[in-house]
């Protein structure tokens, strides 16, 4: 290889895109190894929203067709989109960090000239393409069964596509930072359970945020949780104005910034305490 093409090639490989592409491809390859497990996972994934959907549809029917103005068809739309957003929300969890640190599995990643955060972000982003592919038939079946009401504009669709990736980034970064507390505590599961409970209530996962009492909506508005769940869903199936749609993306950007600072800062401080035990 002559010097000029080699320089061009080095330039092409500089930066992270090449790394992200390869890791995402690897994630897809790994996931495709277990087809049955993937389908079982997806079936497990829809059990939760179907329960919520059946309950809220029953409540809506009992109250004359709507709860706080949300009809059964709108509930169906909410929870069918929910299934996709939930899958976008699957990220490297604090349990993973606990295992990495307690068992020394982080050592292998620390030896690579790439921050472990990039590996996790790339790997789970790659995995999303597999779950989106598997989600399509499930969403089709749910649509046939529950008859959702969709009235989507092109702008809402665009904001939704941006928002689900924003949600992925926010949840990834914040849970990475939370998981890295294991550098100090060796175990972080209990803290994650606390986080999870708050997230369940304040994100729009358990129920649409509009159904929360006023004070809870105020608390939720100051937390990152709606940006990871409620906002992406509302962007597609709600009635948000153009200003509200872009404001939602703006809030997501702020939380991505906060998450980046937290994850990189906690890592920088915590890695000094890493004992590299067990490996």
């Amino acid at each position: 290889m002559t010097a000029a093409p080699q320089t061009r090639e080095r330039r092409r490989l500089r930066g992270l895109p090449g790394f992200y592409a390869v890791v995402m491809r690897t994630a897809v390859q790994s996931q495709f190894q277990y087809r049955t497990a993937n389908y079982l996972y997806m079936l497990g994934m829809i059990a939760e929203p179907v329960v919520y959907l059946v309950v809220w549809s029953a409540v809506a029917d009992a109250q004359g067709g709507a709860v706080e103005g949300i009809t059964a068809g709108e509930f169906a739309a909410y929870y069918i989109v929910w299934t996709l957003v939930r899958n976008m929300n699957v990220v490297f969890t604090p349990y993973g960090w606990e295992q990495r640190i307690r068992q020394g599995e982080l050592s292998g990643q620390l030896l690579l000239p790439v921050h472990p955060l990039h590996y996790d972000l790339a790997y789970f982003a790659g995995w999303k393409f597999v779950v989106i592919l598997l989600w399509i038939p499930i969403a089709a079946v749910l649509t046939l069964v529950f008859s959702p009401v969709f009235d989507v504009t092109a702008l809402e669709l665009l904001v939704f596509v941006l928002a689900i990736w924003g949600a992925y980034l926010i949840r990834s970064l914040l849970l990475e930072a939370l998981g890295m507390i294991t550098f100090w505590t060796t175990r972080v599961s209990a803290l994650y359970q606390l986080w999870f409970t708050a997230e369940l209530l304040l994100s729009g996962r358990l129920l649409p945020l509009a159904l929360l009492p006023g004070w809870a909506q105020t608390v939720a508005a100051w937390s990152p949780f709606p940006s990871t769940f409620g906002f992406p869903i509302e962007a597609l199936v709600g009635n948000l104005s153009t200003g509200q749609l872009w404001a939602g993306i703006g809030v997501q950007l702020i939380w991505i910034g906060v998450g980046t600072l937290l994850a990189t800062g906690v890592f920088r401080l915590g890695v000094r305490r890493y004992g590299a035990v067990g490996n």
Binding site: R10, V23, Q33
Partner: peptide, 21 residues
């Protein structure tokens, strides 16, 4: 879960090794 050749490919990206090398 994947062949070592694919892991090698990942190391190529991690270390930014030019293709021919």
């Amino acid at each position: 879960d994947i062949p070592a050749l694919d892991s090698f490919e990942m190391n190529r990206a991690v270390y930014r090794i030019p293709d021919a090398e």
